[in-house]
Structure formats: C-alpha cells, structure tokens
Amino acid sequence: MNKEYAVGLDIGGTHITAAVIDMAEMKVMDFSVHKETFDSNMPVNEVMDVWEKAIRTSFENSKVEKTSGLAVCMPGPFDYTNGICWIKEQSKYEHFYGLNVRDLFQDKLDLSVDFPILFENDAVCFGKGEVFKDSDNLSKKVMAITLGTGLGACFIDKGISISTGDLVPTDGEIYNLPYKEGMAEDFVSARGLLAGYFALSGKNVNNGLELFNLAKTGDAMAIKTFEQMGEDLAAIVIPWLEKFEADSFIIGGKIANASEFFLPSFNAKIKEAGLEITVFISTDNEVAALLGAASMLYKA
C-alpha cells in the first residue's frame, strides 16, 4: 500500500512554516520543516512568492514523490470553508481582505481544482495538535490559545472543536471580546505588549522579542508589562474557562516563550478565581499546529 503525504502550513502574521506529514503515522517527515519570515503587509504576489518558496523547499527536502493535499492553519477572521480572507485592521494581511486564498494557492502552485486545499483557524490547529499529542486530552475539555501578533483561541471537547453554543464565545474567538477601552487583542498580543511598555516607560520597542530580551536583562518596566499581560489574559479567559468547564488550558504562540514573566501573574488570578485547571505551556507550537492541520485531511 502506498503511503500518503500532505503538506501542512502554519501561517502567522510574520512567518510561514511548511512541513510534509506522513498521513498514516501522523508525524512530520524528517528534514521537511522549513520556515520563512516575511512582512504580511507586502503586496499579495510577494507574500505568495514567500509561501511558494516555503512549500517547495519543504517538499524537496522531504524526498517524497507526491502529496495528496494541502492543510493550512490561518489566523482569522477567515472563511475556512471557502478559503476567503476577511482579516482587516489587524496590522497584518492588509492586501488579502476579500481574496480567495484557495484560488491563490491553486494558481501559484499550478494545482488542479480537485486537489484538496483545506483551511482551519491557527489556534484550532494548535489545539487539535496538542490534543492529538496527548491521548489523555481526548477525554477532556481543553481551551487552547495562541499568543503572537494576535490572540487566537479554541475550545475542544473530547477532540472536537466547539465554536457555537452558550458555552463558548461567538465562533470560539476571544480576540474581539470587549475589554477595558477596546478589545482583548488590544492588550494581549504583540502590539498590546508594545503599547503597554510605552505606557509604563514612555519608550518604544520594535517587537516582542526585543521586549522579552529587556525583561531578561532585568528591565523593571518590561517585566511589569508582561505581568500586566498575564493579569489581562486571566481576566479575559476566566469567564470562558468557567462556562466551558475546561479541564486544561494550553498556551502556545511565540509569546508563550516569555511565560516566565507572565505565567505567575496569570496563575495567581486563576487561583483567586478558585479554578482547578491544569495550565501548561506548549513547547513545540509549530509541530502541534502542523499535525492539527493535517488531521483535517486525515478525517477527509
């Protein structure tokens, strides 16, 4: 029996990671993981050039002869069924609004119209991948979030993503929940951190990594900024952890790497709320997202 392989893509606001997935064993093929960083506000054709490079490099490095599908993790808002991007005013993908990304992939990679190209929310892919990695989670209720250029979320009950009903916010999203004088993502995201640091110190930093490095060197304002984000995150998710009756809360995304600075304040608020829940940081966000994406094709 011939093995089947798929290309999994984890696409964020500043990066794309591609890998070839062995669909029989649901594992990432050796040497196939390839990452490119880019500015998602570049013209569409330039972004597509970067995506094509990542996909072709991954495929070539995997040494497989062919793939049977493309599974894509994309941030929202996005019409995942039809492949249409509705991201707007989020400091990313400014030129993709209203475009059919499935068509863009077909044209760029010269794929037939019947070649499977499936899309899913990046946070849902991450959450499904984490659940897939630990079979114990298949019997639990899990809320997972991704912290990066945006604030992604998913709610998974016994391995199934829940995005409707009274137990979860609209579409399972938390980035747009009203919070303070704006919405959740204004405070819990890379831009939220930068704004928070400026409010405390009067100084601008270029990105989250720069802020993290300042915290590592003992910059009191940088540390306070992360601590405040931990408190804000707790305030945003606690009502939904309670409604969903989550057993586990998983934190992923690039900002999760700074958990030493925001997790203590987050956990303190969780304890104050009287929640008994397992909180942990994912150590391989991208592998989880890629496996979660591939699971769409596995079930197809």
Rank of each mutant, 00 (worst) to 15 (best):
180 K>C: 00
163 S>L: 05
109 L>H: 03
62 S>Y: 08
90 Q>M: 12
122 D>P: 01
125 C>Y: 09
178 P>S: 02
57 T>P: 02
228 Q>T: 01
270 I>Q: 03
98 G>A: 08
68 S>V: 14
240 W>H: 10
183 M>A: 10
285 N>C: 15
79 D>P: 03
73 C>V: 11
71 A>Q: 12
115 F>P: 02
286 E>V: 15
56 R>F: 04
168 V>A: 07
287 V>N: 15
110 D>H: 09
21 I>Y: 12
45 N>T: 03
136 D>N: 11
27 K>D: 14
92 K>Q: 15
176 N>S: 13
118 L>C: 10
186 D>E: 07
157 D>F: 05
143 M>R: 00
169 P>T: 00
261 F>V: 14
7 V>I: 08
237 V>F: 00
145 I>V: 14
207 N>V: 05
230 G>I: 01
34 H>T: 11
119 F>L: 04
62 S>A: 13
111 L>H: 15
43 P>D: 12
180 K>G: 00
86 W>D: 14
85 C>Q: 05
144 A>L: 09
205 V>W: 11
10 D>G: 04
290 L>W: 04
230 G>V: 01
58 S>P: 11
222 A>S: 04
247 D>Q: 13
199 A>G: 11
273 A>W: 04
295 S>M: 14
110 D>C: 06
231 E>N: 05
95 H>N: 15
161 S>I: 00
220 A>V: 09
112 S>Q: 13
254 K>Q: 14
261 F>K: 08
98 G>L: 09
37 T>H: 10
176 N>R: 07
279 V>S: 11
149 T>H: 01
9 L>A: 05
186 D>R: 07
65 E>A: 15
246 A>Y: 01
108 K>D: 04
148 G>N: 08
258 A>I: 10
272 E>S: 05
219 D>I: 01
46 E>I: 00
145 I>T: 06
288 A>S: 15
269 K>N: 01
244 F>T: 04
148 G>S: 13
256 A>K: 06
172 G>V: 01
107 D>A: 14
160 I>Q: 14
13 G>W: 02
21 I>A: 04
89 E>P: 02
68 S>M: 05
238 I>N: 01
198 F>R: 11
26 M>K: 03
199 A>V: 13
164 T>I: 11
